[in-house]
């Protein structure tokens, strides 16, 4: 049990990390795209809001293993198809992000929305040109939670044999080696931090109009 194992397997760890990143990021992006219309719908009516938010919240309570096993039957995919993981994590991302979008849109100042309506913005123009841009800080915050949560859930896919950093856990377990497990955990942490910082940086870049803390 030495660090040699890491050097010997560096290429494979890199490959697994790349897979892991892809399996975390793609579902987050897809989840965001699907959560926007759902969140918008929820934010438009006090009656629909609890239904949509409650319903999407329920999705998050489905155990991930169950979803991984169930999806091939629903989608007609092979059990080893990474698509299963992408779909499952997209479902979780939607569950997290619908609420973020709905609350983010609700946080847009009422005056701003009213002004846009009175100026003659159509509802979708108002959403695209005013509400979504103004909600970016709130949405960015939720996106960080979603992407980090995905990094963690992806590891479960190791139980199905889909390659990503979780594979190091199963390997370490079967070989009774601690180093692969620790290496997997460290890489997961690094990936989480990198993605978190990335989302944060993009959010900041998109919102030069936000009052900076030092001038407040």
């Amino acid at each position: 049990m030495t660090l040699d194992w890491i050097w010997d397997n560096a290429a494979r760890i890199g490959e697994l990390t790349a897979w892991h990143a892809a399996l975390s990021v793609i579902p987050t992006v897809l989840g965001l795209l699907l959560a926007v219309p759902l969140g918008w719908w929820a934010s438009r009516s006090a009656r629909i809001y609890p239904l949509v938010i409650g319903g999407s919240g329920l999705l998050y309570t489905i155990p991930s293993i169950a979803l991984f096993v169930l999806l091939p039957q629903v989608l007609g995919t092979k059990i080893l198809d990474p698509l299963n993981v992408v779909v499952a994590l997209t479902v979780y991302s939607i569950a997290l992000l619908v609420r973020v979008i709905a609350d983010g849109l609700a946080s847009v100042p009422h005056d701003t929305v009213q002004a846009a309506t009175a100026m003659g913005y159509r509802p979708w123009q108002r959403l695209w040109h005013v509400e979504l841009p103004v909600a970016v800080p709130a949405i960015g915050g939720g996106l960080r939670v979603a992407v980090v949560s995905n990094v963690s859930i992806v590891t479960m896919a190791a139980l199905l044999g889909i390659p990503q950093l979780g594979s190091l856990f199963t390997q370490g377990f079967s070989l009774r080696l601690t180093v692969p497990i620790v290496a997997g955990i460290v890489m997961c942490l690094v990936l989480s931090v990198v993605l978190d910082v990335l989302v944060h940086a993009v959010t900041r870049a998109l919102t030069p109009w936000q009052q900076k803390a030092e001038t407040a």
Binding site: P109, T112, A115, A116, A118, P133, W209
Partner: peptide
Amino acid sequence: IGYVIQSAGLFPHR
């Protein structure tokens, strides 16, 4: 019809 409201209601991101 132009519209002016009390707190201006400007677009904060523009």
